[in-house]
Computed example of a mutant assay.
Amino acid sequence: MEQNLLEKTGKTLDEWKALLAQQPFTKHGEYMSYLKKELGITHGFANFITLKFREADAASSTNEDLIVNQYKGKESLKEIFDSLQAHIIKMGSDIEVSPKKSAVSFRVKRQFILIQPSTKKRIDLGLKFNDKPHADRLETSGPFGTMCTHRVQLTDVNQVDTELLGWINEAYSEAK
């Protein structure tokens, strides 16, 4: 993200840090809100800038480490995540990947996919659609609340099939 920061936002990381240093905020969310609402920065870049400014992303919390930690004790699910992520990333260069402590969010203008290893044997794949009925595998959003409109529960990489990839493509198209 740092490599694209100047091109996408018009400022370098050091310039963003200097700007944030002038603000009276103390909380991550306050910086995020300022960057997004006042300066029009996308969620992914606002989070990146804020984390770097607050030095909350110490070397032990790189994106890769966050994902590795999500799958500790759930290693059998990592193949499902890898399969999903590989497909999602190939869909477009405009996709922002944003790992958190317990899930990975994929965004364009809005979040359209959330992948969360919810139990030792299940990944919950959250999808956000504008207006799609729930049916069979395509359940209500469950634990995701308003972050997603639908959920698919995955326990095996073979469930990452044509139908599921079609839903992912549809959610991406609607989010653009």
Rank of each mutant, 00 (worst) to 15 (best):
T12A: 05
I113T: 12
G44Y: 13
K27I: 03
Q70C: 03
L51M: 07
K90P: 13
I80W: 00
S102G: 08
S61I: 08
A58P: 04
I41V: 10
F53Y: 08
K90T: 11
L19Q: 02
L66R: 11
H43G: 03
V104K: 04
M32Y: 07
T42L: 10
M32G: 09
Q23Y: 00
D57S: 09
E79K: 15
T26R: 15
G44A: 01
T9A: 11
T42E: 10
I88T: 05
K100D: 04
T9S: 07
K52P: 02
T42P: 05
A56F: 06
D65W: 08
K101H: 07
D65R: 11
F48K: 03
I49C: 02
Q22S: 13
R110V: 10
N63P: 03
Y31W: 02
L114M: 13
G44K: 08
S83L: 14
R110C: 07
K72N: 07
K27Y: 07
M32W: 08
I89V: 12
W16P: 00
G29K: 14
W16V: 00
K27D: 15
K109Y: 11
R107N: 15
E55F: 02
H28E: 11
E64D: 07
T42K: 10
N47I: 11
E79H: 06
Y71E: 03
I41F: 04
D65G: 04
I89S: 05
H87T: 12
D82L: 14
T26L: 13
T26K: 15
L84I: 01
L77N: 04
F45C: 05
D14I: 14
Y31M: 06
S105W: 09
